[in-house]
Design a protein around this nucleic acid. Structure first.
Lengths: 224, 224
DNA sequence: CAGTATCCATTTCGATACTG
DNA sequence: CAGTATCGAAATGGATACTG
């Protein structure tokens, strides 16, 4: 590909990487997604044909390797792909510092829960099945209720009631929960201000915060 | 802008940065270009209207500040823009390691000389005017001859003979010179192999290598 | 110098439906 | 599960010429 007609390595890199969605797919692969439909959940607004096309481009570019193991297709980053981690980290670090404004369109409960389920601190949780419920009163049904079911080291995201007893229910605006996840506001501050509400056994309510890890970019210091 | 519909900071960053040419403009600003026509030389394949449009977008995004000082317009990076340096560096570092293949289309003598003129080691040069000539026998006239004229701390790139006596003439293929600039091959090796030829006074031929700095990415270690 | 204006070809994408 | 097929709308951008 010769989009820019420049020998500059930044230009050569961007020839592959500046296509829409591409770096988000790489972000997904970097955070552990391996299968087509798993990737789709990370980029839900992308059509499957476009995702498939991008994966082919990335494979041709030597960034992704497609594998077929007994009827199960998986995509993995090559060494070149893995080395894009610093790029993605730099981009996210910049983004969290300088693009604070989120549109309503940017909020997505499915995506939020999907991110959370990948970052649970399972070791901090008691043995046995744990069920967390999230309720977003400002979201239209049926997308206003979600469950994280943790059993052993398996974590499921459910958008329908899995039927198990719920240990803790977290209730609050989708924007609030999203901003907590991004590290824009503090969990404790939101609870204190009443914009986040916890229900469940007192000893669990106190520790649930420790079960949830935040976004990897939450800890990035913000401009003063 | 809401291209992706994601709250993820990587997505929010890419909404601004993944547009074609955008990161190359930022690269130019990071390397010191300030004026419209100066920027154009760094992205020669971009139409002026598109450059103008991108600069407006970047200004709206808070990355660039447009200034008008007594009839002279200039563009400068804001703090947010300056903080994109690690992003550009990560991209270039990745690009130099993993995209080694250059198409014929990627070679551009004007761009190469433009890059070189920004990176001359003027302190290492003797006082008085120094003129370097570059000849690319494999390039069609008139783009096969270029001059760098250094006078004091002023450096000019000429595509027509400036008329001054030439101190050193560097002759070699455009690909060779480009690869040296990128750090893909060594100056000394190219001279040794005869793919680069120097003419001029012996004492100047010996030191000219020290006058030219290479691309900032030349020193990045390559995959083994 | 520092841009605008115009215009059309092309690319790109999103939506939707379908398949082994 | 892992994609492909199709299609039309919209965005995008390149070329070129022009301006205060």
């Amino acid at each position: 590909m010769t989009r820019y007609g420049q020998f500059c390595p930044v230009a050569k890199a961007m020839e592959v990487l500046d296509e829409r969605w591409t770096l988000l797919i790489i972000r997904e692969l970097l955070s552990g997604s391996r299968h087509f439909n798993e990737l789709r959940r990370g980029v839900p607004r992308m059509s499957p044909s476009l995702l498939s096309q991008r994966l082919r481009t990335l494979t041709r570019a030597g960034i992704v390797e497609r594998r077929e193991d007994r009827n199960r297709v998986s995509y993995e980053l090559t060494t070149a792909g893995e080395e894009l981690r610093p790029v993605v980290e730099a981009l996210g670090g910049w983004g969290i510092r300088w693009i604070g404004e989120l549109g309503v369109e940017d909020l997505d409960p499915h995506l939020l829960l999907w991110d959370m389920h990948r970052n649970l601190n399972i070791d901090a949780m008691p043995d046995g099945r744990i069920v967390l419920a999230f309720v977003f009163p400002d979201v239209a049904r049926p997308a206003d209720r979600w469950w994280l079911v943790v059993d052993g080291d398996e974590v499921d995201v459910c958008d329908v009631d899995p039927g198990h007893p719920v240990d803790v229910t977290v209730t609050g605006g989708l924007a609030t929960m999203t901003r907590i996840w991004r590290g824009d506001i503090e969990w404790d501050a939101a609870v204190g201000a009443g914009s986040l509400e916890l229900t469940g056994a007192a000893h669990l309510r106190r520790v649930v915060r420790g079960w949830l890890r935040l976004s990897g970019f939450a800890a990035v210091p913000r401009p003063t």
